[in-house]
Design a protein around this nucleic acid. Structure first.
Lengths: 341, 341
DNA sequence: CTGAAAGCGCTTACAG
DNA sequence: CTGAAAGCGCTTACAG
């Protein structure tokens, strides 16, 4: 069965397409009687406006794009959930693409979304992204852009983040407060701002407490799909390199769980021999043994906040109002569990 | 900057819009010279066709819809990954919505996608879905529909599944082969076909091996966001109800891990006292201790297969060819690990 | 080989 | 209060 059009309704009622259109949208200059007739018939015929035509006329698609490094990831799937839920409330649909942590792919995905003429884009950067012209391009096209989690400070768009530096500081301070004196750090990849910030927070906490900063205690993990294994490997290496470490602040829960597994295997007791603080508060962290002390990173909330901000900017642009980029920082908290003393 | 249109190119070159359109699409009836000129200018002006107009003309959106019960779920996020990747290869984008296991919401999401005029829909049903008119409606609109994982046999559309009954049979047989004689089952919710099939496979394996089927050994879990806790609760209850159980086949890895955690806590040894087989092969299953014997459920592959099938049907419908629903069954395998003897 | 024309289905400024 | 007209940007059957 072919979808009903305004024209069909108009012919049926012997009025014009223009009037039907206006009646359905409750324009004040249509008589109540006509409105009632039109609406009644529209309902019985199950009329649905043709989105393609509406899009073409109104120049908006009521669709936004989302680019994330990986879909199969607890934090990002939580963010997706938040964005999709919030978008739906406002009548927006979400197209999702993943960059696989590749700059090239990220560029391509942005291009696809622009061609699709989405009304706005939300993105968390790939680890490999060091050039931002594709993102500036989005802004030049007059499309709102919101970054979250892995952001680029230099791009003048709104951002939804947590205070990574502060959270890392808190995590490290907690290790110090529980009498750790030789604290290692498993950091994330080199480029992402959040892994830089977490590293800086770790370092500052050490220095503020009069502990020396020792670069040889900092291990890197790419945090790709091998996170767990990276945790194991780093733990193994750490035990070889340093037998005096008594605490580790780890960039991500999954890496931390990998490390704990390795320590278990090698008979190193957590937290007695080595205390561990993770990051993100993945649900498994409260469930493994010992349960993992960690920083809560509110994924769903970040997704919601990112869409809300994007929505404001979409509205603003529609009204030709200028938009001032805003950085929204969500609260995190340290969740103390068994992996620290 | 405003996007370039065909009209602008036409004016610049003093030819008609029609010729520009045809030149760009390599119609055979345009001179090589004109084509070269047009393509050259289109490139320098960075011309991109207006998707809204193309959609309206061609009556297709190159967009598909995906409805899943939950996004934050290892299996489903793997499926998303497979679908999105495969769709992108064919120039399709994916709009994702979640039903939260609610029939009402699922109905609404389908409606949204139809209004958006997606070219096809892929769905895994909500646990709560017992009525299928919304899905039949999709087919009546002439839109291809592909179900995966949680399907409804009664809806005449293509499906991508695994042989749940066979896989469950294998899992149970493995427990029997390793000398379990009193085998419990933690099943999924009552309605979904796959949890019914897994239950039936369990039951058949028992009977085929001359073991009695005891309904009191079957525990239910909704497998919503409390899966882990449900596993713990069922394990606790099982220990109270039956002290003679020596094996359990569990509907999902996460529930199984919950159960194992509870057994650990209560000093019940896995696999010596109770052997466990899970289902899905979540990556954590190879990582916990003891590692979990399970059935591998190929999420990414299922996603890819679902899109491939949908794509075929979209093409067929475009050519007015009839489509014969097809059931695609992917292979699974039993992965033996430490949780069974 | 090129272009005029019609049309996809809608919205909205304007005339009456 | 109603409707004719223009137009969003493209595609394609048809005429020349």
């Amino acid at each position: 069965m072919n979808p009903v059009t305004l024209k069909q309704i108009a012919e049926e009622l012997n009025i014009s397409v223009a009037t039907v259109s206006k009646a359905l949208k409750d324009y004040p200059d249509v008589s109540k009687k006509t409105k009632a007739l039109v609406k009644e018939l529209a309902r019985t015929l199950n009329y649905k406006p043709n989105t393609f035509a509406v899009n073409l006329r109104t120049r908006e698609s009521k669709t936004i794009g989302l680019v994330i490094p990986v879909i199969v990831h607890h934090f990002f799937s939580n963010v997706i959930k938040g964005i999709v839920a919030q978008a739906e409330k406002k009548g927006y649909l979400v197209i999702i693409l993943q960059s696989n942590e590749s700059y090239e792919l990220e560029k391509k995905q942005i291009d696809l979304l622009l061609n699709q003429r989405v009304d706005g884009i939300i993105i968390s950067l790939a680890n490999g992204t060091a050039d931002f012209t594709h993102l500036k391009h989005v802004l030049e096209m007059g499309k709102p852009l919101v970054m979250f989690d892995k952001i680029a400070k230099i791009v003048p768009c709104s951002k939804v983040v947590i205070d990574d530096r502060k959270a890392a500081y808190l995590a490290t301070q907690h290790l110090i407060d529980t009498r750790c004196t030789r604290i290692a750090h498993f950091r994330g990849a080199l480029l992402p701002q959040n892994s830089i910030d977490r590293f800086l927070g770790y370092k500052k906490a050490l220095l503020d407490n009069g502990l020396p900063y020792d670069p040889s205690l900092v291990y890197i993990c790419e945090c790709d799909d091998r996170s767990f294994e990276e945790g194991q490997e780093n733990a193994r290496q750490l035990l070889k390199d340093h037998n005096d470490v008594d605490g580790i602040f780890i960039n991500t829960d999954l890496v931390a769980i990998g490390a704990m597994t390795e320590f278990n295997k090698q008979g190193v007791n957590v937290p007695e021999d080595i205390a561990i603080v993770g990051f993100s508060n993945w649900f498994m962290s409260s469930v493994i043994s010992p349960t993992l002390t960690t920083i809560n990173q509110p994924g769903v909330q970040m997704g919601k906040a990112a869409f809300k901000r994007l929505y404001r900017e979409i509205k603003a642009i529609k009204k030709n109002k200028p938009i001032a980029p805003k950085v929204i920082t969500l609260e995190t908290e340290l969740i103390k569990r068994e992996s620290t003393k």
